[in-house]
Design a binder for these strands. Structure first.
Lengths: 144, 144
DNA sequence: CAACCAACTGAGACTGACTTGCAATAGCCG
DNA sequence: CGGCTATTGCAAGTCAGTCTCAGTTGGTTG
């Protein structure tokens, strides 16, 4: 009972781990940055920049939207964060995990379903064989 | 040698055919509408509303962008037109064909490759069997 | 074939999702 | 502690559409 069993291991364990990576890359762990990370750690599904900016964590400290976007971009370049585009609407951000989660998007209810990348390997292989196309569903999910 | 062999049969044959459907639905075939259709008939791949508005046909008569969007929407509701979202960037519109063409999008070169829906049926079936998700790649293509 | 009227058009304002410029601020390495 | 420069916060800008509204026009009808 130490952790919510269904969460796959993240690419980075905690904020300190990320801080180290950040500093190694000549960056800093600022207050705004920490707020973004806290919101992402608190979220159970990919969330929008808007949601992060309006401070959905326990503290609910709102931060600047432009800064949130810049930080998400920076953290994504570091491999800490990833984002998906589910249909129309804003992009959704989440902490990067080790298995490269991919997504299914429901066109009717708008829900995003996470799928471990390996469960799509057979489908990916079939697409490559039949169409010569190396598919990825991590940034743009499978709609239907 | 009567037609460019590789074009699949359209849902509507020509402008007159569309005009009839339009009128049946209480609509009109206006000059602006005709311009949109001409641009789409002239295009060999899905094009943007911007391109249609700037008049890429032989005549190059520019038209109002808002009107183009309204007309594309109307024609889409009629089943004459469809559109795809290739990654970021604007949506791309084309005349609807009978086989429900689907698409592959190249993340590197940005190119959109048309694929007849039946060539993706096996993949679609596999996705349904493994994930219980009825996939469609006509509005959001397969990226990779 | 003229008149009528709802379906359109065009211009501009507006929205949502970001992105950029810039002066002020603040991590962090020494 | 000091200083260098990454980062912030705000405002303004951009891009892809959408909406409002007064004026126009297809096309059906009298």
């Amino acid at each position: 009972m130490t952790a919510p069993a269904h969460t796959p291991p993240l690419a980075f364990d905690d904020v300190e781990d990320i801080a180290a990576a950040l500093r190694r890359a000549g960056g800093r762990l600022t207050a705004a940055r920490r707020l973004v990370l806290e919101a992402l750690f608190a979220a159970s599904a990919p969330i929008t920049a808007e949601q992060i900016a309006s401070g959905l964590g326990a503290h609910a400290i709102p931060s600047d939207l432009a800064t949130v976007y810049r930080n998400l971009e920076r953290l994504e370049a570091l491999g800490v964060v990833r984002h998906v585009h589910a249909g129309h609407g804003p992009g959704r951000y989440a902490l990067a995990d080790q298995q490269g989660t991919e997504y299914l998007a429901c066109d009717r209810c708008g829900k995003l379903t996470a799928v471990p990348a390996h469960r799509l390997d057979a489908i990916r292989a079939q697409i490559r064989d039949e169409l010569g196309h190396h598919a990825r569903f991590s940034h743009f999910p499978i709609h239907g």
